[in-house]
Amino acid sequence: MALAVNLALGLLFGIGLIVAGMSDPAKVLNFLDLAGSFDPSLALVMAAALAVTFIGYRLAFRRARPMLAPRFELPTRRDIDARLVGGAALFGIGWGLSGFCPGPALVSLGLSAPGTLAFVPAMLAGMWAARALTRNR
């Protein structure tokens, strides 16, 4: 049951990215190109996703627990540290160089563009390396 739910929600998320145009790095790079061929579409993608999630989370959190799991698993940290800001900055540079963030990169995997096939293994290696470096800290 849990596997089927996760498969369906991953599919829904991926279809959302494709409908939104975010699976096309050219569209993402044009959103980031304020001084050039600016395409504001991505701002509306984020606004709509955020509005639905903001309202939907509040409805979900009225429940004592999720429907299929024993408890809500939510991040509890509220501190701003150098790792958070430095990590986000590195991510933003990679995003601006490629037009890919993790979701669209994984959605694009099966479309098999050579650039995607170079990006995704490197991304997974980066995630693995960062977790290995920061373990037990």
């Binding site: 990590g87 900055a89 540079i93 995003w95 650039g115 991304m123 995630m127 960062a130």
Partner: peptide, 29 residues
């Protein structure tokens, strides 16, 4: 979709996205 064919650039960008999102505990979503 239009994906850059510059493979060293894409691999470098992927590494930055992987390191950055893991260190920064999250991405766009």
């Amino acid at each position: 979709q239009t994906v850059s064919g510059n493979l060293p650039l894409m691999a470098g960008a992927g590494l930055l996205v992987g390191l950055g999102t893991a260190l920064g505990s999250g991405c766009t979503s």
